[in-house]
């Protein structure tokens, strides 16, 4: 399960809609299955059927995530004209070239379908061990705040 706030999910969807008809992408920082920071990234190879994160931006964001004490819990991209399910290219690129070693083990690939732009659909998947498994996205209202009593 991957938890995301309504606000963060809205940010992802806004980024996807703003980039339409091209695919857009981003990185999700967080802890223990909980998204705490959404990074909207530049698609270095913009097109309606492809994306590649800008490598320097990716490097900077991954560093920022480490320095914040978080981990990369996932990444997202849009399918402007496709379903919210990993394509064969998504699956191929999830593994180290020429192997079945996942590039980012345990990271959830969130895919946003814009087939119906009035009702975007976001779903999460793990792509490893030669299979695609859905990881439910749980949308929460906002980050819960710890209440400290004196």
């Amino acid at each position: 399960m991957l938890t995301i706030t309504k606000t963060d999910l809205a940010r992802i969807i806004d980024h996807c809609l703003a980039g339409y008809p091209n695919e857009v992408c981003g990185i999700l920082g967080g802890t223990e299955g909980r998204i705490e920071k959404v990074y909207c990234m530049t698609n270095a190879r913009p097109g309606p059927v492809s994306y590649e994160m800008d490598p320097e931006e990716q490097f900077r964001v991954m560093k920022d995530i480490r320095e914040a004490g978080l981990s990369m819990v996932g990444m997202f991209h849009s399918h402007p004209g496709g379903y919210a399910y990993p394509s064969s290219v998504d699956v191929e690129k999830a593994y180290w070239p020429g192997t079945l070693l996942p590039n980012y083990p345990s990271a959830v690939y969130v895919i946003v379908s814009l087939l119906d732009r009035a009702r975007p659909v976001a779903r999460g998947y793990l792509i490893e061990e030669s299979k695609v498994s859905e990881i439910p996205l749980t949308v929460i209202e906002e980050q819960e705040v710890d209440i400290v009593t004196q």
């Binding site: 190879r45 059927v49 590649e52 994160m53 990716q58 490097f59 990444m75 690129k93 590039n103």
Partner: peptide, 11 residues
């Protein structure tokens, strides 16, 4: 030195 796999895909 950092070795970083690209994040890419497409449909």
């Amino acid at each position: 030195i950092s070795i970083v796999p690209a994040i890419a895909g497409g449909r």
